[in-house]
Computed example of a mutant assay.
Amino acid sequence: MTEIAPSAHIAPGAVIAPGAQIGAGCRIGPFCHIGPEVVLEDGVELVSHIVVEGATRIGAGARILPFASVGTPPQDTKYKNEPTRCEIGARTLVREGCTIHRASVGGSGVTSVGAGCMLMAQAHVAHDCILGDGVILANNVMLGGHVHVGDGAFIGGGAAVTQTVRIGRLAMVSGLAGVTNDIPPFGYVFGLPARLVGFNKIGLLRRGASRDDIRTLRLAHNFLYKDPGEFAAKVTQAEERWSGDPLVQEVLAFIRDATRRRQLVRPGRMTAPELGGVDEENGEGA
């Protein structure tokens, strides 16, 4: 049975299938199509010309702009309309033309976008992707299936991320990058294929990291990726050397994670004309 809160506003021309649940204060614009298993929490706004299908839940206060589609079937030839889900967190903004597919049967059964995210125009979130809170995807970002993106990460315009890649918290991906390997927390990557060229100093400072935190993280980054020596041995040494530093330990835990399916991104270097908003000496993301 369809449940539409009395305070919801449904424009003429919108189609609400029997069984959908529409929360208080929702605004559904003209020519939107809402499937029978969809749940819109309070205050969701669908501006116009939007399709929401499947077992999809959209969190309170989320806003979706024209020609986006959410919860449509995955682009996976193995998928035979099995019951999978799609979830969009509260206060997330989905801009024009974005596509967010529900999960396939080869993962956790849910595609999830966290709270307070912004997906800019034409971004694509494939089946079984998991995005944390506060993630920003710039225009035309393409995420393959089963990609995991940590809280607060930023992926620049036109970047492509291949399936099963993991991107750590507050990592930064440059525009047009081609990401084929895992990016540790706070890492900054650039190029095709993407290479680790620094860390996201500005993002860390904006979220409360101190100058001492930045100095320590820089020391650890240089030790792991620039100093000579076998990488596994340096990871062990870093665990002991910075045992009391939570940011360094977060990076090391990501590196040690046995569930990762991709190798770590390799370190690289940016030449001066390519630097843009990156500090040339320290490779710090702007």
Rank of each mutant, 00 (worst) to 15 (best):
S108D: 13
G285S: 11
Y188E: 08
G107E: 08
I130M: 14
S243L: 09
A138C: 13
G61H: 08
A126W: 06
P12I: 12
R262I: 04
T56R: 09
G283K: 03
A153E: 01
P73N: 08
G97S: 10
V197T: 09
A253R: 15
I155T: 04
P73L: 06
G168H: 01
L204M: 15
A55R: 14
I100Y: 06
K226F: 09
Y79C: 05
V179S: 04
G25E: 04
T92H: 09
G178D: 06
V251H: 00
V161L: 04
L176F: 13
G97R: 07
S210Q: 08
L217N: 01
E3M: 15
V135A: 05
R218Y: 11
V278H: 02
E240S: 14
A233V: 14
K201Y: 12
D257S: 10
K226T: 11
T236N: 10
R207D: 07
A286Y: 11
G106E: 13
T77Q: 12
G187Q: 00
Q122K: 13
G150L: 01
L204W: 02
V179D: 03
A115F: 12
A121D: 09
E53Q: 14
I34L: 07
G134Y: 00
S108Y: 13
V51S: 14
P73S: 10
S104R: 08
A272H: 12
S174Y: 08
A272P: 11
A11L: 05
P193Y: 05
L170N: 05
V147A: 00
R260T: 02
A159R: 00
V173N: 04
A171C: 08
Y188P: 00
N282R: 12
I16V: 15
R218V: 00
C32T: 03
R166P: 02
G158F: 07
Q163A: 14
G191W: 10
P185S: 04
R218C: 04
S112G: 07
G283I: 06
E41M: 06
A171Q: 01
G152P: 02
